[in-house]
Computed example of a mutant assay.
Amino acid sequence: GGSARRGAHGGAVTVGGTPWTLPCADPAALGHREEAAHREPRYHIRKKDLGQIHQAASAGDVAKVEQILSLKKKVLDARDRKKRTALHLACANGHPEVVTVLVDRKCKLNVPDSEKRTALIKAVQCLEEECATILLEHGANPNHSDVYGNTALHYAVYGDTPSIAAKLLSHGANKEAINKDHLTPLLLAVSGTKEEMVEFLIQKNADINAVDKMNRTALMLAEHHNSPSILHLLEEGMDVFSEDISGRTVKDYGTTSGFNTIHHQISEYKEE
């Protein structure tokens, strides 16, 4: 749960039975249709797309940013060809000094880029915790959702960063926010087998009986992904009798996956 910054959290996970690779805090497989579009969370930078203020912010050139703003105040919230502001680019590239200059000049905090992502979402997606903290402390909206319905908290889950998630929640982030695949942050954490995030969200009283678009609970997803440690975290408040849209129960998921550690727990639960 330590402070996060510019990491490369690689690894393969499975969401809904579809394998995908996670390079950094990439949310590619909220549904596999997004995978190709988001393999790299940082912006693809082409000089021809940027104005002067965007170039300076992207490079972290504080002096240049201040010089440009002293001459052209109107460019503070100017958008480049990809609808990004200087704030977006400073956050995505981890330049908190530039972020501070921009917010002190009263820039707009919640401008969406071409993917409907705010600067806060980009900061969290790219694991730039210091930038995210500055934005939150200046009133950035933690519940804005992007083109895929993801909030900053969803991205904190993909980045496996409880420290960022804690800051988002302390500033009013909705822990039950649902993206376009009907996944709450907790369901997302279970699907990605991110044990630390699952434990954190349970401690924050996230709804463990929430269901995805297939009517699968966190317990079913944990069983499906063969996650004994996550099953253990979920067992206290589990609903073992719920069914998905196909009428399958948690026990059926265990039988399908060949993973049966929870069946003894179910038997004990029924006896009680």
Rank of each mutant, 00 (worst) to 15 (best):
H154Q: 09
R105F: 01
K175E: 12
A56K: 02
H38T: 06
E199V: 13
D146W: 03
D244Y: 07
E195C: 03
D212F: 10
A156G: 12
V101Y: 03
I68D: 06
E271A: 15
L71Y: 03
L188A: 14
K251E: 15
K48G: 05
L120K: 02
Q52S: 14
E129T: 11
A90E: 03
N150R: 07
S163H: 12
A152R: 01
R33P: 01
E130N: 15
H38A: 06
A173C: 08
L71H: 12
G31T: 12
V124K: 01
A63Q: 13
Q125D: 00
L233V: 13
N209I: 14
A189R: 00
K48R: 12
T161G: 03
E196I: 10
H54L: 10
A173G: 02
S246G: 08
E137F: 01
A166M: 06
G51M: 14
T151C: 04
G159V: 02
E176P: 13
K204F: 09
C131F: 04
V157S: 09
L188H: 05
K213Q: 14
K108Y: 01
L183G: 02
V211L: 07
K83T: 03
G16Q: 04
P41K: 04
K48N: 10
A189N: 03
R42L: 08
S191R: 12
A189L: 07
N150Y: 04
Q125W: 05
R39Q: 15
L102Q: 00
K82Q: 15
V99E: 00
V111I: 15
L169N: 05
S191E: 15
R105P: 00
H171D: 02
H154M: 11
K180N: 10
I245F: 11
P228I: 13
G247M: 05
E137W: 00
L120H: 02
K83W: 08
D244S: 07
T18C: 02
F259G: 02
K116L: 14
R5P: 03
T18S: 08
E128K: 02
T217G: 07
D61R: 13
D104S: 09
L76A: 06
D104H: 07
G17P: 04
K106I: 01
E195W: 00
H38E: 05
A177K: 09
L169H: 08
I230Y: 09
Q125L: 11
I262N: 09
A86P: 04
Q203F: 14
